[in-house]
């Protein structure tokens, strides 16, 4: 009997809804997200402004649509850099082993032992704030966690009979690593990517909240929280709605990764 995978389904609905809003926001928003309107400063949520307005009278719902896009864009780029870099590092160290593996993995352990946001803060304060810099800093710091998982999988798979058959047929190491072994990592990479995406969303939000991430006139969910803190008491909706959006994204992707793991263990 086929049982519904509720975690996966719920996760896809939640994060799908936010991603859809973010995409639509690139082409259409109810109001111009940067248009100021002094007549409706700090207006409470209403039918005209679903999530209220901020201190400049800008529509918060429109800004969330734009901010969510920036946040997801940063997270996706970060995960991509981490996944590609981590796969290369993990594949080479896991497959070949030896002294190189030892050295790289000890560096990895050192990087993993610091909170990645802390290291990203150091990098960004060296490079200066901005969307591209935050992607670069977070992306590099996401490499170790991917590398560790990929390395483990390569260690497990490199002496399996099917890999030996490929060697005996005359396949080269590169071909074995990336054509024979890599496709077997699909599910574990997907799970790791979903978790990594969440961490990236939270890291971007923290960095932008500290004023080091996305710079105005661009906006992101973290940036909105940063701007909202001054008005926490006269306009709480300014902080609540971007915060809730972050929660929905993170919850959605947590459910997706849990659902994937569940599906894998059920076979």
């Amino acid at each position: 009997m086929k049982r519904w995978n509720y975690s996966l389904l719920a996760g896809c609905i939640l994060s799908g809804a936010v991603l859809a809003l973010a995409l639509v926001g690139q082409f259409w928003t109810p109001y111009d997200p940067t248009a100021m309107d002094a007549s409706v400063r700090n207006a409470a949520p209403s039918l005209a402004h679903l999530c209220g307005t901020d201190n400049f009278g800008r529509d918060i719902f429109s800004r969330i649509m734009n901010g969510a896009f920036t946040t997801c864009f940063v997270a996706i780029c970060t995960v991509l850099i981490g996944a590609v870099g981590g796969t290369l590092v993990g594949a080479v160290t896991g497959y070949f082993g030896g002294p190189l593996d030892n050295v790289v993995m000890r560096v990895n352990d050192v990087l993993l032992s610091f909170p990645s946001v802390l290291l990203a803060l150091v990098l960004v304060s060296l490079m200066g704030p901005g969307t591209a810099n935050i992607i670069a800093a977070l992306g590099i710091l996401f490499i170790p966690s991917f590398a560790r998982i990929v390395r483990g999988e390569y260690l497990r798979l490199k002496n399996q009979d099917f890999v030996w058959s490929a060697r005996i047929m005359g396949a080269g190491n590169l071909r074995i690593m990336f054509v024979h072994i890599l496709p077997n990592l699909f599910v574990s990479m997907l799970t790791t990517a979903a978790v990594g995406f969440n961490n990236a969303v939270l890291a971007e939000a923290s960095m932008s909240y500290l004023g080091l991430g996305v710079q105005p006139p661009e906006t992101s969910l973290g940036r909105m929280l940063y701007e909202a803190q001054t008005y926490l008491f006269n306009a709480p909706w300014y902080a609540i709605f971007p915060g809730v959006t972050i929660i929905i994204i993170v919850l959605g992707f947590s459910l997706i990764s849990e659902g994937l793991r569940e599906r894998e263990s059920r076979g």
């Binding site: 099917f162 030996w164 058959s165 005996i168 496709p183 077997n184 699909f186």
Partner: peptide, 18 residues
Amino acid sequence: KRPQVVFQDPFGSLNPAK
């Protein structure tokens, strides 16, 4: 020509992703 092999464990000798 190079010899080829048939392994014992039929569940480990074929690439599960292909």
